[in-house]
Computed example of a mutant assay.
Amino acid sequence: MTDPEKDGPAPPLALRIVNWIGILDQLTSTEANRLLKPLDLGLPQFVLLNHFSHRPDQARTVTDIARALQQPQPGVTKTVQKLVDKGWLGERANGRDGRSKLLVLTAAGKARHRAAIAALMPSLSRAFADWSARDQQTLFKLLDRLKVWFDRDRDPTQEPRDRQAT
């Protein structure tokens, strides 16, 4: 507990919630990187494979991906190139813009994504082992509501991302 006399009042609950989400992100990112390392897959690469897995037959440009993930294009380009080099993403000509390529998830990329999910699930299952299905569904519903709000409230100069979870 904080001592209001020494520490001042507790931060507003909204800030504490977002702070907790940030801490969870740090903890889960560290664990995911550890679990994915034997698959020669870093978390940024998994995030891209996961993004593609929602619509595996849809081709995307690096610009599309960077916009959807709200990441700088140079970093996305570097991660995409690693996935192309490993054969997990394929490239083809972009008929609408000769300066860019269209990227697609390959069969090997789908297989690596499935292997990554299998590597992550034991840890996630342990984390939720004593949660009821109802509690998990409630948490998901509330987090989805928060995600949708932040997605809709983003900077108006940014185009809206596709609404699929990443």
Results as ranks from 00 to 15, higher is better:
A66T: 05
R67M: 09
R67W: 05
R67V: 08
A68D: 12
A68M: 11
A68F: 09
Q70F: 15
Q71F: 14
P72M: 13
P72I: 10
P72L: 13
P72Q: 11
Q73D: 14
P74G: 09
P74K: 10
P74E: 09
G75Y: 14
G75W: 14
G75Q: 14
G75L: 15
G75M: 15
V76G: 02
T77I: 00
K78V: 11
K78Q: 08
K78Y: 10
K78E: 10
T79S: 09
T79A: 07
T79Q: 09
V80W: 00
V80Q: 01
V80D: 03
Q81W: 00
K82V: 02
K82T: 06
L83S: 05
V84I: 12
K86Q: 12
G87Q: 01
G87M: 01
W88P: 12
W88K: 09
W88E: 13
L89D: 04
L89H: 03
G90V: 13
E91A: 11
E91S: 14
E91R: 14
R92H: 15
A93S: 15
N94M: 04
G95T: 14
G95C: 13
G95A: 15
G95P: 13
R96E: 11
D97M: 09
R99K: 14
R99F: 08
S100R: 15
S100I: 07
K101I: 08
L103A: 13
L103N: 14
L103T: 10
L105T: 05
T106W: 04
A107G: 11
A108D: 13
A108P: 11
A108M: 13
A108N: 14
K110H: 08
A111T: 13
A111I: 11
R112P: 02
A115Y: 12
A116Q: 05
I117Y: 05
I117N: 01
A118W: 08
A119W: 09
A119T: 09
A119P: 07
L120D: 03
L120K: 02
L120W: 03
L120F: 03
L120E: 05
P122S: 01
S123A: 07
L124M: 05
S125K: 09
S125R: 12
S125W: 11
S125H: 07
S125Y: 07
S125T: 11
R126M: 04
R126E: 06
R126D: 04
A127G: 06
A127C: 06
F128M: 06
D130S: 08
W131N: 01
S132T: 12
S132Y: 06
A133F: 02
A133I: 02
A133P: 07
R134W: 07
R134Y: 06
D135M: 04
Q136N: 09
Q136A: 10
Q137T: 13
T138P: 00
T138F: 01
T138R: 11
L139E: 03
L139M: 08
L139R: 07
L139T: 07
F140S: 03
F140G: 00
F140A: 06
K141H: 04
K141M: 00
L142W: 08
D144H: 07
